[in-house]
């Protein structure tokens, strides 16, 4: 809708600005808090401008952590989160690409049933199946390991479903042309389907990376060894100190650092993301 009414555009901008402020203010507050010293936040007056302790706070968190809260240095948790998010995103994309390829391009018995079984798992998110999944993972001896942290989260239908929808838009003739050109199933997949799905893969990677990064419940359950803590669950530990006021300035430094990687992924992958939406290669 393109309308030239000054009042209307003022109003729409106002609504947008209010929205941005609502979203951004807590983030800003977290950042401000992470730059102040011990006790500044317990005085009752919340400072609104950055303080002088920025480098000091961040260095402390990255290298030492708060041992009294049972949290390891932040860099361990950050790299754990990074590894887990990447394994989950890559694993999910790989598995769903292959299963969508099978479902769309091959005609085998029970194809439809296979599709529906995968589709039905959409109704069973991690939280619903968490007890049996935990039991299985525990019995396999995968507690406190990257495999145990990622494997149950990799199996999912969402990405399979998205790739299926994309593959359905690829004309049959393309596959037939490839067959006439002497490309077998895997060659067709590698030479034609994968390059065509590039932008979809990038878009999904962004979504799945963030999905993996913000996992809270599952890492909490399967890790008891602080070497495998992820940053999102670590924050909870930092804040929940017994018999003492939480050291907010340090907690907020951790929060700011935890927010950073997803933001970076969005910013840098966004170009691919938009390219995927604008340039339809068909």
């Amino acid at each position: 809708m393109v309308e030239n009414r000054p009042f209307l555009s003022f109003l729409t901008h106002l609504v947008l600005i209010i929205g941005v402020v609502l979203v951004a203010f807590p983030v800003y507050l977290a950042f401000v808090a992470s730059t102040h010293g011990e006790g500044d936040f317990l005085s009752g007056l919340v400072p609104l401008w950055p303080g002088p302790h920025l480098i000091e706070n961040y260095r402390l968190m990255l290298t030492e952590g708060i041992s009294t809260a049972g949290a390891p240095p932040l860099w361990i948790m950050l790299s754990n989160s990074l590894i887990i998010a990447i394994i989950i995103a890559v694993g999910k994309i790989a598995i769903s690409l292959l299963s969508a390829y099978a479902i769309v391009f091959f005609k085998f018995r029970f194809r439809l049933i296979a599709f529906w079984i995968i589709f039905i798992t959409l109704m069973l998110p991690v939280e619903v199946r968490i007890i049996p999944t935990f039991k299985v993972v525990a019995d396999l001896g995968l507690l406190n390991s990257y495999v145990g942290l990622t494997l149950p989260l990799i199996a999912s239908a969402t990405a399979t479903f998205l790739f299926r929808q994309f593959f359905l838009t690829i004309p049959d003739e393309l596959m037939e042309a490839a067959r006439v050109d002497g490309a077998g199933p895997m060659k067709f997949f590698r030479d034609i389907l994968l390059p065509l799905s590039r932008t979809n893969i990038a878009a999904l990677f962004v979504i799945l990376f963030i999905y993996g990064w913000v996992q809270y419940l599952w890492p909490m359950l399967v890790t008891t060894d602080s070497r495998y803590y992820t940053v999102v669950m670590g924050i909870k530990r930092l804040a929940a100190t017994a018999d003492a006021e939480p050291r907010w300035h340090l907690v907020m430094a951790a929060v700011t650092l935890a927010m950073l990687p997803p933001v970076l992924v969005v910013i840098f992958m966004q170009r691919l993301f938009i390219k995927g939406l604008v340039e339809t290669e068909k």
């Binding site: 004309p171 393309l174 037939e176 042309a177 006439v180 034609i192 390059p195 590039r198």
Partner: peptide
Amino acid sequence: PAERDIAMVFQNYALYPHMTVRGNLEY
């Protein structure tokens, strides 16, 4: 199809969209 020594021209061309014209011919 590849073993039949035939070449086919399709109604919607079915060119590989991500390859250059040369790539299409060479594939």
